[in-house]
């Protein structure tokens, strides 16, 4: 065991894992976190807490992780390299581990120009892959970057990374994933997948490279709420492809029934993703729609979640 986190246990046991995403509030109210977490309780193995997603200032991922952790969840702390240099990143990792946070997902983060602080100075001292190797060094060698001093305490971290299978250059994506795994990623959560055929091709390459054996891959899904959202995701969100077929299904949904259709599509996608060789779990990113997660988990027969001791 690298960290003993619930996510690690579930994945190691060979069970199909379920994670979901929770965005901290734009404010200091811990009640928001508790309410959102309440909607996920019992339906997920772990909950990802985003780190100032889309460069909008929110409650810090670290403190929101501490809050959900106190509520009995196994958090995945997301960390972007946009806002902190290597000193702050490593220091926050130590702090997170001391608070019992065991999963950390390494990201570069959306560029600061997208958020509500567009004139901030981006840090990007290290990139996501370099953050992965930094965490691995902290865990396995108990050492910081470029330093030989030994760190005290147990530093158990289950290291996560993201993958966008359909960003360009498409043929390089599996190889870049390999770089992340070589750097030390234990699990991968992908960008949301709608095009199963394309994703199968990606996974074939991943299996060819043997990556599925070195690391647990969770496929990302996002339930659609409306046809408009489907079109937006398809045209505006990098690395997301929504097939025409799904867009027209969303367009065909009766008024007020869009989200039902979205959940139905999401469940079908999960069924198909489960059949793909190398896919070890699913990561549900229901953006500001945490209620959907329980529905989806129940409808896909992924409820109840396994309880693993040890």
């Amino acid at each position: 065991m690298k960290s003993g986190s619930n996510l690690e246990k579930v994945l190691n046991s060979g069970k199909f894992a379920v994670t979901a995403e929770l965005g901290p509030p734009k404010g200091a109210d811990p009640g928001v976190i508790k309410a959102k977490a309440g909607l996920l309780k019992g339906f997920v193995d772990s909950v990802n807490i985003t780190d100032n997603q889309t460069a909008v200032v929110r409650m810090s991922s670290l403190s929101a992780c501490a809050l959900v952790s106190a509520g009995g969840f196994d958090p995945v702390m997301q960390m972007v390299t946009r806002d902190r240099n290597r000193i702050a990143l490593q220091s926050d990792v130590l702090g997170a581990v001391s608070l019992g946070i065991k999963n950390i997902l390494c990201l570069s983060g959306d560029h600061q120009c997208f958020g509500n602080q567009p004139y901030s100075k981006g840090v990007y001292d290290i990139d996501s892959i370099q953050l992965i190797s930094t965490l691995k060094r902290m865990r396995d060698e108990k050492k910081l970057l470029d330093s030989d001093d030994t760190l005290t305490g147990d530093i158990g971290i289950f290291i996560g990374a993201a993958s966008t299978p359909f960003s360009e250059p498409v043929e390089y994506r599996p190889l870049r994933l390999k770089k992340k795994i070589d750097a030390g990623a234990d699990f991968i959560q992908t960008q949301c997948i709608y095009d199963i055929e394309l994703f199968k091709k990606f996974m074939e390459r991943v299996v060819d490279l043997g990556l599925h054996e070195k690391c647990h891959i969770l496929a990302g899904v996002t339930p659609l709420k409306s046809a408009r959202m489907a079109v937006y995701m398809n045209t505006r969100v990098p690395g997301v492809i929504v097939p025409e077929k799904l867009i027209s299904r969303m367009e065909g949904a009766r008024k007020g029934k869009g989200s039902e259709e979205g959940i139905a599509i999401c469940c079908e996608l999960i069924e198909e993703l489960r059949q793909i060789d190398g896919v070890r779990g699913v990561h549900i990113m229901a953006i500001e729609w945490e209620q959907a997660v329980g529905d989806i988990v129940k409808k896909t027969g992924l409820f109840p979640r396994p309880k693993i001791r040890g």
């Binding site: 570069s108 560029h111 981006g122 990139d127 870049r176 770089k179 990098p238």
Partner: peptide, 29 residues
């Protein structure tokens, strides 16, 4: 590269352009 990363491209590139601006090439592509 808008993020100055050393192991790119990040997942933000689209049609060979950088996530920050659809007119600017993605250096890593």
């Amino acid at each position: 590269c808008a993020k100055g990363i050393y192991n790119g491209p990040c997942g933000g590139s689209r049609n060979g352009k950088c996530e920050v601006d659809e007119k600017t090439a993605c250096a890593w592509c």
